[in-house]
Amino acid sequence: MSLVLEAPEITLGGRRLLALDRLAVPAGEVVTVMGPSGSGKSTLLAWVSGALDPAFRARGRVLLGGQDVSGLPPHRRGIGLMFQDDLLFPHLSVAENLGFGLPAALRGRAARQARIEAALAEAELPGFGPRDPATLSGGQRARVALLRTLLAEPRALLLDEPFGKLDVALRGRVRDFVFERVRRRGIPALLVTHDPADAAAAGGPVLELGDAAAG
């Protein structure tokens, strides 16, 4: 399963924000997109996830495992998304947040609960299920957010500066946690960042967006 962006071109009110030839992300790899703010990095991710603001016009195709998903609404694309903020739902407990991501196809209260417990234990957060997300530390919240995304069994992952708000000490550990899981799942991941250390840790190809748009 790979993620391929074919000739994306995004315009706003007739002005071209961004245009690429082709960007392929192989399974289990992290491709990094870098560029100054305003270069359209986040807009690119919004387009891939299907949540582009209607004010923008976009051309091109998103291929996931060879299948064109450009026409699908965001929730049918199977593309996971992580933001700079963890965006855990404040009205739900940690377990309920994870349950929100778990596919409905997994039936039975006990089975779902067990799956959530297992995920928490594996992320070194055993027994955190009933906790209020607001009482977690930054690193814990980031890990729960990633667990929630992965429990939804995405076929690809978009990372929109997901480590931007973590302090330096935490950053490396959360980064390793995320990248290690991407590799283990064998899904393609597209990372947007302005931190060269993120790109280095990702280990995959790096695309400088400012250059690409100009050229």
Partner: peptide, 21 residues
């Protein structure tokens, strides 16, 4: 924050589930 809805959609929640839940 519209990102709440985006986060939910990325987890596979349809528009009505996002609206309600």
């Amino acid at each position: 924050d519209p990102r709440h809805a985006r986060a939910a959609a990325a987890l596979g929640a349809g528009p009505w589930r996002v609206f309600w839940a």
